[in-house]
Design a binder for these strands. Sequence first.
RNA 1: AGCCCGAUAGUAUAAGGGUAGUACGACAGAUUUUGGUUCUGUUUGUGGAGGUUCGAAUCCUUCUCGGGCUACCA
Length: 577
Amino acid sequence: MTEAPNESSTERSDAGGHLNFIEQLVEEDIAAGKNGGQVFTRFPPEPNGYLHIGHAKSICLNFGLADKYGGQTNLRFDDTNPVTEDTEYVDSIKNDVRWLGFEWENEFYASDYFEQIYGFAEKLIQKGLAYVDDSTSEEIAAQKGTPTEPGQPSPYRNRSVDENLDLFRRMRAGEYADGAKVLRAKVDMASPNMQLRDPIIYRIKHAHHHRTGDTWCIYPMYDFAHGQSDAIEHITHSLCTLEFEVHRPLYEWFIERLGIFPSRQIEFARLNLTYTVMSKRKLKQLVEEGHVNGWDDPRMPTIAGIRRRGYTPASLREFADRIGIARRENLIDLGLMEFCIREELNKTTHSVMAVLDEQPIKLVITNYEEGREELLNIENNPEEETITYRRVPFSREVYIERDDFMENPPKKFFRLFPGGMVRLKGAYIIKCDDLVRNDAGEITELHCSYIPESRSGSDTSGINVKGTIHWVSVPHAVEAEVRLYDRLFSVENPAADDPDGQLRSFKDLLNPNSLEIVRAFVEPALVEAARSGEQTNFQFMRKGYFVLDPDSTTNRPVFNRTVTLKDGWAKEQNRKS
RNA sequence: AGCCCGAUAGUAUAAGGGUAGUACGACAGAUUUUGGUUCUGUUUGUGGAGGUUCGAAUCCUUCUCGGGCUACCA
């Protein structure tokens, strides 16, 4: 240990070294010598659905924490409810965790511990701390009382140890029907904490389990499986979301009575994101009512959806890092997630040209010889340390977007207008001479002239233009389908519109324009790159970041818009209107 | 209603008795062959009231507001 590092290094370590409250607790534990200074965590999903961005926060937290302190993280499936769980979900969860960039130390299942957990239950019975209750679920609910009134003891609360043991074994043996009996922990029916009013710890379910098959007909409840699994795995820090806070006294009660490894449960606030919903029930509703096209719809906050939207694992890890960890409820601005993916893609993708328009304008360069073609060198990404170039064909006719031309432009419109000049990106400066209209009076073509000495890279024209627009050569253009995704909901916090947790119609909350499908013309190099699998993420110059979608066919590529570019012009226009 | 948890710029997140900082956003300017990027600058905050203290975002009291708990789900 060297003393007194110089000031600058102290500052540096402080600057990046803010600890969140969990890291502080962990460091206190390490300093106190708990668990031999080790840090073991686990990510414990129930395999009953798809992972979403909130799970990503938890994954990054658990794996990140163990990694930071030289520990390990297990992937543990919390599969104690056979009727809701399925192997299909196990596979998708593993896939998502790996895709995020994490590798677990062990793959475990709560169902691996059923025999041990059963043993814990018998131990509790033998200590007189658990009893078999024949009451119906309604009766048990009535016994619980309310938060303001204490509960009443069950008539079966004082059964003898022997009777309880016998009954519990017969429960296991399958002698009773579902719901006929439960095993309850004998804690405190008058506790102000409802979780402690003799919670049910085992129930009878004659159901097929995705892993244990028909071996069991009794299954432990969450409260008698999660902490026990943590203990078995010697998880030092068991991180979960705030709603489990009231379970912690029970978690610790079991540790004490059972004398098992004392994992420490720490709760943090779950992630909420603007313009989306996070609850499994609501996500399911979106899928089932057909508001989206499945769990991996690019508008969904599922990891599968976000992946298909074109987000990268690194951008999600960065996002998880930036949102922080705390105990207060939060609603994170979707814009932060967008910032994270732009930040990465800006550095890594090639900027290519795509004309996104159902009805692009054809631009005819009247003084460019018919049949002439040039291959222009255009830089792939101005951010590259050493710039690379690709060849882009140019010809007498090019497509441009309708938005890049205005017949009567407002002030500070830098794009094309009658008599105006712009640069075609990577090519020439052109001047708009004439408009061509169809019978309906719509503009179909622009006749322009180009300045031959203004060619990019060897411009001797001395002309400066304000605007540069993108284009695609008509004879070389490849047609593509482009899916323009936007926020799923039009209100910031759709969950707030659902105060009672009632299932209600999403109709007035959904963004009607969350998906717009347009035809596009893209430069040929892009299709080659995508087909070869070299790159799937691109910047469509001036438009946004796009990713090749699995729906693509060899003849017709499909691109999803991941996120738009920031658009100062559009922002200013919106402000005016 | 009882118990528990929480409250720091618009949104998040630091500061654990000693100058309220950072990021995103917003605004302004510079650069720019992407109205992008980059750079520079500006802006905005400790929920209220008391108390302890030389000194309080931090400790205490109280109020207010927000969240959680009354599943044989997790």
